[in-house]
């Protein structure tokens, strides 16, 4: 029988032998990101040189599917040795390209690893007083965050897929209107994903998500 796997050789290789797996004792930065849409989780741990702000060591753990594990693995390779500013800019697309491509439906399992890295860097910056003054949440901030909510059908984020009909922000109350029927196959997955992305914003008190397709 011919062996035919749904992933590139590179993905399979990183899945079979993931690099930089595990925890770092007393990390300088760490984060655990989870996707309520598919249930995957990824943890990222950093050691950072305080002088150069370079990532000297990075490890990850995954409770996820093959593309989640492979992306976690490749992201640690891409980030190691980079400065925090450089590492922050690594995109999901770069990670996916480094793996020789990923199926679109797997986008949101694998984007988690990228988010995990950024969150770990943010954690480092917060602990070391490197964060700028907290900016208030605006419609643009919300839209920026929504770019990390994927439509599982296409692998496109909901902003690019033109599924966000309206965003309102007023006195810590966020209201988002999604251009999908509430009976849509992925409505619940997308609702949970949006909440997950918006809730951590420091000045957001309530989130209202309306499906109006």
């Amino acid at each position: 029988m011919m062996v035919k796997f749904p992933y590139t050789e590179k993905v399979l290789e990183h899945f079979r032998n993931p690099r930089n797996v595990g925890k770092i004792e007393n990390p300088d930065g760490k984060a655990i990101e989870g996707s309520p849409a598919c249930g995957d989780m990824v943890a990222v741990y950093l050691k950072v040189d305080e002088g150069t702000r370079r990532i000297t060591d990075i490890k990850f753990e995954s409770y996820g599917c093959a593309s989640n594990i492979a992306t976690g693995s490749i992201i640690t390779e891409l980030a190691k040795g980079k400065t925090l500013e450089e590492a922050k800019k690594i995109t999901w697309k770069e990670a996916a390209d480094a793996l020789g491509g990923l199926p679109p439906i797997k986008a949101h399992c694998s984007v988690l690893a990228v988010e995990g890295l950024r969150a770990a860097i943010r954690d480092y910056e917060e602990r070391h007083g490197l964060t700028q003054a907290r900016e208030p949440t605006t419609v643009d901030v919300i839209k920026h965050r929504l770019k990390h909510v994927m439509n599982p059908l296409t692998g496109l984020d909901v902003v690019r897929a033109d599924l966000i009909r309206d965003v309102e922000v007023k006195d810590g109350k966020v209201r988002i209107v999604v251009d999908l029927a509430s009976s849509h196959q992925f409505a619940n997955a997308i609702r949970e994903d949006i909440k997950e992305k918006i809730e951590p914003l420091w000045d957001v008190k309530t989130i209202e998500i309306e499906f109006a397709g």
Partner: peptide, 20 residues
């Protein structure tokens, strides 16, 4: 699969609808 066994799972990541 890589070891030569075919089984299935109820995980969302495996399904076509991405639903558990």
């Amino acid at each position: 699969d890589m070891r030569g066994f075919a089984v299935s799972t109820g995980s969302a990541c495996f399904s076509r609808s991405l639903e558990a």
